[in-house]
């Protein structure tokens, strides 16, 4: 399976993603520069975290107009697998590949810590190796993760099972207290209608080895690899 890690000026998690794919998953991986216009040779594109274009104006607002984003949109429209992590998620929102937007965390602080996430749908390319209701321990690191969307779209996301991860407590209860940033419905990760585009605020690449304190992020990588294998 071939991964591409899209690098924008200001990305800073691209090396972590590359490392996990290369050294932990032992799959093919390339960096894809933001000026690239052809991404057709990849099976899965990773939009990593960071501060693309300094996060000026709004997180992801300028990155979405990078030449590569047109190629990413085209790739996604053909069913290509795209995962946006943290700033990558924000870029997918700005680009309209996922619905909604990000506000500042209600606490007005940058939060960098482990959180618990409940798997809300285990029948997706990204979670097929997890079980429904499974609790994952994965870190977040962001200032704008307060997800918001209009009520109508929220209802659709729920009905269509496109809310993939919710912030929860260690027991898997989705509570106000377990919501680190004020996100609507404790949303930590969502998919598009085709489930081939996934955006999430937590960093699975930072929870993919024992030495980092958690390997719960691996389930996402293993799921997408299994999906790709089965798809043939």
């Amino acid at each position: 399976m071939k991964f591409g890690v899209v690098v924008f000026p200001g990305s800073n998690c691209e090396a972590d993603c590359y490392y996990v794919v290369d050294k932990v998953l032992r799959e093919d991986v390339d960096y894809v520069w933001h000026r690239e216009t052809d991404v057709s040779s990849y099976d899965c594109l990773i939009l990593p975290g960071g501060f693309s274009y300094g996060d000026y104006l709004r997180c992801g607002a300028i990155a979405r107009f990078s030449p590569v984003m047109e190629a990413v949109a085209d790739f996604a429209s053909r069913g290509g697998l795209v995962i946006g992590i943290c700033n990558g998620f924000q870029i997918l929102l700005e680009a309209g590949l996922l619905p909604g937007a990000m506000l500042r965390n209600t606490c007005l602080r940058f939060i960098c810590r482990f959180v618990h996430l409940r798997v809300e749908n285990a029948d997706t390319p990204w979670t097929n190796r997890a079980s429904l209701g499974q609790v994952l321990r994965i870190p977040i690191a962001h200032n704008e993760g307060n997800y918001v969307v209009d009520p109508e779209t929220y209802r659709r996301l729920e009905e269509e099972g496109r809310i993939i991860l919710r912030y929860c407590d260690p027991e898997g209860e989705v509570t106000q207290e377990a919501n680190p940033n004020g996100a609507m419905g404790n949303i930590a990760g969502i998919c598009n209608e085709g489930f081939n585009v996934f955006g999430l605020m937590p960093h699975p690449e930072r929870a993919s080895e024992e030495i980092l304190g958690s390997t719960d992020g691996l389930v996402i990588w293993e799921s997408v690899m299994a999906y790709n294998r089965e798809k043939g």
């Binding site: 500042r104 965390n105 209600t106 606490c107 007005l108 918001v148």
Partner: peptide
Amino acid sequence: GVLDPAGQA
């Protein structure tokens, strides 16, 4: 209707 955390602070 959109929450404004900075405004609230």
